[in-house]
Design a protein around this nucleic acid. Structure first.
Lengths: 338, 338
DNA sequence: ATGAAAGCGCTAACAT
DNA sequence: ATGTTAGCGCTTTCAT
């Protein structure tokens, strides 16, 4: 933009060698330099308005201090907290996060991955649910550092950070059983997502544990529409109606609200609904949604911590961190009608 | 992470000079190279798994192909669409967005700005509402490229992209007046935000235009709590109760929902409420919220377009782009009670 | 404690 | 059409 001030400029005005300026201005090498010289260099640097060039430094040190974050879609409300969690850990350590959206496209994911590689990111945090493991397998064999968040590593030896979904679903089922529900249905997420699978399996297991007959219905997407249509189909069929619904995420649960309303059913008086994620404003819907809170911010923090540890080489091997979830009981669940 | 493949490696195996490889691999210089040579170079590059080093290129070209995006908080639902809009314009053009959050802190904003400068971003998109203009004034005098989004430039000669808030508020007031409301209240955003000021002024002007007495109440923040408390105070006072509320954003309107409910007032039967922004899920609250939709994604796109134009030097001077907004009528507004 | 020199990987002006 | 050369701004051995 203007004439940039470089290290050499500072060195010249301070009457020292550029190498000395470099040492004086860097925390870790400052001690190698005479106190007085260091002070003078800093004064001159400030006077000149010197701004270090991180690109030049990165070229030399082979460290970009940048982390690539690959998510499906920032407008999906679970991702902003994850990204902020990541950033809150990275920023104080001098790292920046470069966030990209795949919109669920595998080819986009590949392209973005390569683009981040070109930018010399020091590692990746990957949150895309149904990713081809092939990409990550290749990345691993290339020696690329990465951590998975909100998904398992699916065989590739990368660390991952997930919420304890199974426990969350179990708590939801237990809550409903204690309210007297015996006919419980699970609105499962689309096949191919590891979260869908984990939650559906946990639902089946929990129903077995509590000795209630649980039925599972797949949906084609984690969306309001998908939830509404799935429940519409269920409600329109001749099947024995359920009195409680455990949805695989809050959007699906919201779709269930719509479907219930359009069928003249009240929530929670006629049918109880439990969501998953506790996305923003889940407590502001009508009725306020009972849901499983996943600690998204903390998952972001933890994934960043893990990644920096791996980069630093202080990680033994791939670990799997499971963070506790909690059932948030609000107004969408009540005693079963008789 | 492994032994990196460089231009020189490709050159050696292809039996040409590095300069030739550089030309062969770059779109704009490819024509300067023999077809056959170019093909061979590309083949070798692929064979070796060559990944260009964008950091090295950036150092040489003085172009990082990175844009700094400064926002208050990614978890505020209006920002993800803006960021995605920005990204949708930048990505196809080879640019990446480096997004940072200030959390409303001026000192954080300064620090982050400097950090982005160090990373040699080619320009900034700034969405922080109550920013010290001082920072941007300094930036401008430093020759830094920038565009403001969702806020005005406040005297600094930078371009800005905003929604037509005044028109949106006017449409809201008109809608309420046509429904027979005469006692309308505006829940204004916190002072210091340009959006608060613009919307409050527009409210006053619209009330004058439609000849209804409009009252304005300030809130200390754009939050649910602030909206609830402000309306609580109003409802608990002896003032002549309003039959309609125009809030400066959806969060404030949501707070109004809560306050109304806790006072035994129904929305929209007793009191109509209009929000602003049409944030995600505004239509899923109970009642579905009537609100002014601001084209956040498009605002992002437009700000990115403007910024790249300015960087390319193809912009005459600072322009102010105002994008149309629209009133989305849902269930929170109805005829005034008599 | 500081200077000297080399080079990270690339592009671009100049030469042939 | 391709080779040569010279850096971009920084860090980091190696000397002194």
């Amino acid at each position: 933009m203007h004439k940039r001030v470089t290290l050499a400029d500072v060195a010249q005005l301070a009457g020292v060698h550029p190498g000395t300026v470099s040492r004086a201005l860097n925390e870790k090498t400052e001690s190698q330099v005479n106190q007085a010289t260091a002070r003078r260099v800093r004064r001159v640097a400030k006077q000149l308005g010197y701004t270090p060039n991180a690109v030049a430094r990165g070229l030399r040190t082979r460290l970009s201090m940048t982390i690539g974050v690959i998510i499906p879609d920032l407008t999906n409300p679970i991702f902003p907290p994850i990204v902020r969690g990541i950033d809150s850990y990275l920023a104080p350590r001098g790292y920046s996060a470069l966030v990209v959206n795949t919109d669920g496209s595998n080819t986009a994911e590949r392209t973005l991955f390569e683009s981040l590689m070109e930018r010399q990111v020091d590692g990746f945090i990957v949150a895309t649910g149904h990713s081809q493991h092939q990409l990550m397998a290749e990345a691993h064999s290339r020696g690329v550092h990465a951590v998975m968040v909100n998904r398992d590593a699916n065989g590739v030896p990368y660390s991952s950070v997930i919420g304890d979904d199974a426990q969350g679903i179990r708590a939801a089922v237990e809550h409903l059983v204690k309210l007297g529900h015996t006919k419980i249905v699970h609105l499962a997420g689309p096949v191919g997502f590891s979260t869908s699978h984990i939650r559906a399996s946990a639902f089946v297991a929990a129903c077995k544990e509590y000795d209630v007959p649980g039925r599972v219905f797949d949906t084609p997407a984690y969306s309001i529409e998908a939830g509404q249509e799935a429940l519409d189909a269920l409600l329109d069929s001749q099947l024995d109606p359920a009195t409680a619904i455990v949805a695989s995420n809050d959007l699906l649960a919201l779709g269930a609200y719509h479907s219930l309303r359009s069928h003249g059913l009240r929530c929670p008086e006629d049918v109880s609904v439990v969501g998953f994620n506790d996305m923003p404003f889940a407590g502001d819907f009508q009725p306020p949604m009972t849901t499983v809170r996943a600690p998204h911010f903390e998952m972001g923090v933890e994934s960043a911590r893990l990644l920096l540890s791996e980069i630093a080489g202080s990680l033994s091997g791939a670990v799997m961190v499971t963070l506790p979830v909690s059932l948030v009981i609000r107004g969408s669940t009540a005693a079963a009608p008789h």
